[in-house]
Design a binder for these strands. Structure first.
Lengths: 149, 149
DNA sequence: TTTCGTGCAAAAGCTTTGCATTAGC
DNA sequence: GCTAATGCAAAGCTTTTGCACGAAA
C-alpha cells in the first residue's frame, strides 16, 4: 500500500472507479463530494464539505453528503476520524490508517511523516492474540501557530 | 507516572482525595460512580455505569453519572475514549493515555501491555513542531474469542 | 442558611432515515 | 421505464443543560 499523498485527480479517478465497480451511479452531487475528499488536506467535516459545495451546488443537501460518505466508508475509500465532542473528520486522499496531529486549540488536523507500524502491529498481535485489521494513532497538543499566540 | 493497573481501593482513594482537594463534595452517588470507574477493567460506557448502579441506587440518574464523569475529566481522573458511532467509554483505573485493543465484533476494549511512547512522541515533536500533551492509540480487530466463532 | 448536588425532562448537536420527487442508465 | 439518488424534514442517539427540590457543610 502506498503511504504518501497522491495527486487529487488520480485519487478522484480511483474513487469513481471503485463506486462504479460496485454498481453505484456517479451523479454530479456525488462527484462533487468525491472531488472535495480526494483533494482534502485539511480533514474536513461533513458540514464543512457541505458548505464548500453550496455555492456551486445550491441544491446540495447535508443528507447527500452524509450518504456519499457512507458509501465511501463501505467501499473503504475514505478514512473516518470519529469524535464525540465535535463532528467526525474525513480523509479521502489517504483512506488508510495513518497518524494525525490534532491541535486542541485551533482544531487543525494534519499528517505527520508516516511511521512504520508493521513491527508494532505484529508485536501487538503476538502478545494479545488479536488479529489487528486497523488502528488509530492521534497526537494531541498545540500546533506551531497556536504556540505563538 | 505509573504505567500499570493499581488496586481499585487505592485508586478509589486517590479519586476521592482529588475531588475533595478541588472542593467537591463526596455524595453517595458520586462515590458509587467513582467506585465503578476505579475498578473498571472493561471500559464501561456512561449507560453501563448507570445500569450497574441502578440496583443499589434506585434514584440514580444518568445526569448524575454524566456530571460525575465531567468532574473527573476536568481533574484528569478519568480517561475518555471518544466514539461517534457508539457511546464513549471510560477508564478510571488508568486515567492516562495508553493503547487499547478494540474488538470490532463484540465491542470489548482491553489493554495490551504498555508501550514506551516517549521516544516516538519526542520524534514526532521534533519533526512537526507540535507540543504533544496527549495521544490516542487504538488497535481494531477481532479478539481471540471472536476469532473462534 | 447558604451553597452544592440530584434527577427529571427538555434541549442540543451530529448523523441517519423515510419518503416523495427527480434523474441516471 | 426501471431503479437508484436527491433532498427535505423528521427521527434517533448520546450527551448536556435548566431548574426545582433536597441535602450537605
Amino acid at each position: 500500500m502506498d503511504k504518501v499523498r497522491i495527486l487529487p485527480e488520480i485519487r478522484l479517478k480511483q474513487m469513481v472507479e471503485k463506486l462504479k465497480k460496485n454498481g453505484f451511479r456517479i451523479t454530479p452531487q456525488r462527484y462533487a463530494v468525491l472531488k472535495v475528499l480526494a483533494q482534502s488536506e485539511n480533514h474536513p467535516s461533513a458540514e464543512r464539505i457541505y458548505e464548500q459545495l453550496l455555492t456551486d451546488y445550491p441544491t446540495m443537501s447535508q443528507a447527500t453528503v452524509y450518504k456519499t460518505i457512507s458509501l465511501l466508508k463501505k467501499t473503504g475509500e475514505v478514512l473516518e476520524l470519529e469524535f464525540s465532542e465535535m463532528s467526525n473528520r474525513y480523509d479521502g486522499n489517504k483512506p488508510y490508517p495513518h497518524p494525525h496531529m490534532i491541535c486542541t486549540k485551533c482544531g487543525t488536523i494534519s499528517d505527520p511523516p508516516m511511521l512504520d507500524f508493521e513491527k508494532l502491529k505484529n508485536k501487538m498481535m503476538e502478545k494479545t492474540g488479536f488479529t489487528i485489521s486497523s488502528h488509530r494513532l492521534d497526537f494531541y497538543g498545540y500546533c506551531p501557530d497556536c504556540q505563538k499566540k
